[in-house]
């Protein structure tokens, strides 16, 4: 029993990811390792081009690693499946031909997880959690961007997946709505203690959302550091530096080096 609690839920082991564009073969990440434990709020953070979204897609099963492997609960990830529900950045991720309620119900029914009646109850329960009960019978095109993202989160959570994968879900929102959604997400986590793998390029968001932050360096993405966060941007008593400043420095250091290389070169 002790053993199962301490073994990781998601194990990413030496994963190299490559994709082809018309002209090039691009290496997105190079031998990345990390482990996500149950109820973690695990954040992948890095500048653009560090392969964090590609990494999330690989965990989602949309991409095969060319090297290394990804396993969820001891089983190797080979293709997309409802045990890893995704929340995307784009607002068009809801099915426009279904109402909010049916959007949340559909994966429950389609994956055969539960019967129609149970699915409806569960869907309404999660729609209530994201405060959209009034809009249960609305079509997605009548909702605002923030509401659409809430539906997408409710849809992901209603499936009660092993892990929820979120790909910059708040990046396309305005600052006020984003702040509110971050707080709501943390509140939801307090309620249900789900496991989430969260991709972002915003340092404050990473510090606020994550309990564990994986820092990736760009071109190709490699693990730079793994840090703990308590949600408040606290000053480290040993170094006297705020967490966000520490992260900023680690990500920024590269750029200074690069610029110097350019100058010297």
């Amino acid at each position: 029993m002790q053993q199962t609690n301490t073994s990781p839920l998601l194990d990413v082991n030496g994963v190299t990811l490559q994709y082809k564009t018309k002209q090039h073969l691009v290496t997105a990440t190079y031998r990345v390792d990390f482990e996500v434990y149950k109820s973690d709020r695990f954040v992948l953070l890095g500048p653009s081009g560090c392969g964090k979204s590609t990494l999330l897609k690989a965990v989602g099963g949309y991409m095969r690693p060319v090297e290394g492997d990804i396993s969820l609960g001891g089983k190797r990830v080979t293709r997309p499946g409802p045990d890893r529900m995704m929340v995307f950045q784009e607002f068009d991720q809801l099915l426009p031909w279904k109402t909010v309620k049916h959007n949340v119900m559909f994966p429950l029914c389609a994956s055969g997880k539960c019967a129609a009646k149970e699915a409806e109850e569960r869907a309404m329960n999660y729609i209530e959690k994201v405060n959209l009960t009034k809009f249960a019978n609305s079509y997605p095109h009548t909702l605002s961007g923030g509401m659409k993202q809430r539906v997408a989160i409710a849809r992901g959570m209603a499936m009660e997946p092993d892990i929820l994968l979120m790909d910059e879900p708040f990046a396309a929102l305005d600052a006020l709505t984003r702040r509110k959604m971050q707080e709501e997400l943390l509140q939801l986590w307090e309620d249900t203690r789900f496991t989430v793998l969260f991709v972002t390029h915003s340092i404050p968001e990473a510090v606020m959302i994550g309990n564990r932050i994986l820092l990736l360096s760009p071109h190709p993405g490699q693990v730079k550091a793994e840090l703990n966060s308590c949600g408040k941007d606290e000053v480290n008593p040993d170094t006297g530096v705020k967490l966000s400043d520490r992260i900023h420095e680690m990500l920024f250091a590269d750029q200074v080096e690069e610029e110097q290389e350019v100058i010297h070169g």
Binding site: E90, A110, S111
Partner: peptide
């Protein structure tokens, strides 16, 4: 859209059901 396709596959749909649904 690519997002909708990914959503469909995320639900575990494939083949005929993916096309219809």
């Amino acid at each position: 859209s690519g997002t909708l396709r990914m959503v469909g596959r995320n639900y575990g749909l494939s083949g005929f059901r993916y096309i219809i649904k």
